[in-house]
Amino acid sequence: MKITFDEQVLARLSNWSNADVVLDFDNTLGETGRPVEGCSIGTNYRLIAIDKGTVPEVFDIIIDSNLAPLHFKKYGEMFLENGMTITENTDKRIQFKAAGEIIDSNVQVLDYRQAK
Rank of each mutant, 00 (worst) to 15 (best):
L110N: 08
V107H: 00
Q95D: 13
N106K: 14
K73V: 15
T90E: 15
I63T: 06
D60Q: 09
I62D: 08
T85Q: 08
G76S: 07
L47N: 05
A99N: 13
M84Q: 02
R46Y: 03
N106L: 13
N66C: 07
S65K: 04
A68Q: 09
N106M: 12
Q108H: 10
I61F: 07
R46P: 11
G53A: 14
I103P: 06
Q108E: 08
P69A: 10
E101F: 12
F72L: 07
A49T: 09
V55E: 05
D60C: 09
T90H: 13
Y112Q: 02
I63H: 05
L47H: 00
D111H: 08
V58P: 02
Q95F: 08
R93C: 02
Q114K: 04
I48V: 03
I102R: 05
D60T: 11
R93F: 09
D111M: 11
T90G: 14
K97L: 06
F59T: 05
I61W: 08
L110A: 08
I86H: 03
D91N: 13
D64Y: 15
I50L: 02
L80K: 09
Y75S: 14
H71Q: 11
D51S: 01
A49Y: 06
L110C: 12
L110Q: 05
R46L: 13
Y112A: 00
A99Y: 13
F96W: 02
E77V: 06
G53E: 15
E81D: 04
K73L: 13
E88P: 02
N82E: 10
Y112P: 02
M84F: 04
D60V: 06
I63V: 07
L47P: 01
I61N: 09
I61P: 01
T90R: 15
M84K: 00
T85H: 06
T85P: 04
I50N: 04
A49R: 08
V55G: 07
G100R: 06
A68F: 06
D60I: 10
R93G: 01
G83E: 00
R46F: 10
Q95P: 09
V55C: 12
Q95V: 12
T90I: 14
Y112W: 10
A98V: 03
N82W: 11
Y45Q: 00
I50D: 08
L67I: 14
D104A: 06
M84R: 01
F72Q: 00
Q95R: 15
K97D: 05
P56Y: 12
L47R: 03
K52D: 15
I61E: 03
E77Q: 06
E77D: 09
R93W: 11
